[in-house]
């Protein structure tokens, strides 16, 4: 069991000033991982941790596009969308992600799936428009953890 945990170990690293690299392994072959990551019927089952996806479209081909949206009402909804640049199923995909349709600054994302034994080694490289955009993405990515951090802080202060 411990071996498995080690094998799947997530790595999140910063690359240069603008990129984040996420690496992880899966116990399933690339064809299956590819299906789970690109089938619009399956994506909402795992993508994002808090809100439920309300719209999920994927036209998976070079020149195609995608649209992922969360939140029920216009005030709290947000979406990521953009063009699909390259597809080589089940091993490689490059797409550009715009937040709420803002095409002024896009994130270029490459996803690579490599067979490793009976499993898959996944590498996602997210290249942001600039260093600030990357910092912002990290900050925004963490807002879901706000409550937990404040709770911990409060517990700490109560002890002291």
């Amino acid at each position: 069991m411990n071996k498995n945990v080690e094998m799947l170990q997530l790595q999140v690293t910063q690359d240069g000033d603008t990129a984040i690299i996420v690496r992880r392994s899966f116990r399933h072959p690339p064809t299956r991982v590819w299906r789970a990551m690109t089938d619009p019927a399956l994506i909402p089952k795992w993508m994002a941790s808090m809100d439920t996806m309300t719209r999920c479209e994927m036209d998976l081909r070079p020149g195609g596009s995608f649209h992922y949206e969360w939140g029920g009402s216009p005030e709290n909804s947000f979406y990521f969308s953009g063009p699909i640049l390259a597809v080589d199923a089940p091993h490689h995909m490059t797409h550009v992600e715009y937040f709420n349709g803002d095409t002024a600054s896009g994130t270029t994302i490459t996803t690579d799936l490599e067979a490793r034994g009976t499993g898959t080694r996944m590498t996602i490289v997210m290249r942001y428009a600039d260093a600030e955009a990357r910092e912002e993405a990290i900050r925004n990515g963490m807002t879901d953890g706000f409550d937990e951090v404040y709770d911990k802080l409060e517990a700490l202060l109560t002890k002291a």
Binding site: R24, F26, L42, A48, M142, G145
Partner: peptide
């Protein structure tokens, strides 16, 4: 460090869900 850990945690939460989806579709197949 804690906050950077939070960012990492969000990814891990997603990937653990993806693990479950993979198990599920493997059973289907």
């Amino acid at each position: 460090w804690n906050w950077l850990g939070q960012y990492r945690t969000l990814w891990e939460v997603q990937f653990q869900k993806l693990d479950a989806v993979l198990d599920e579709i493997a059973d289907d197949e």
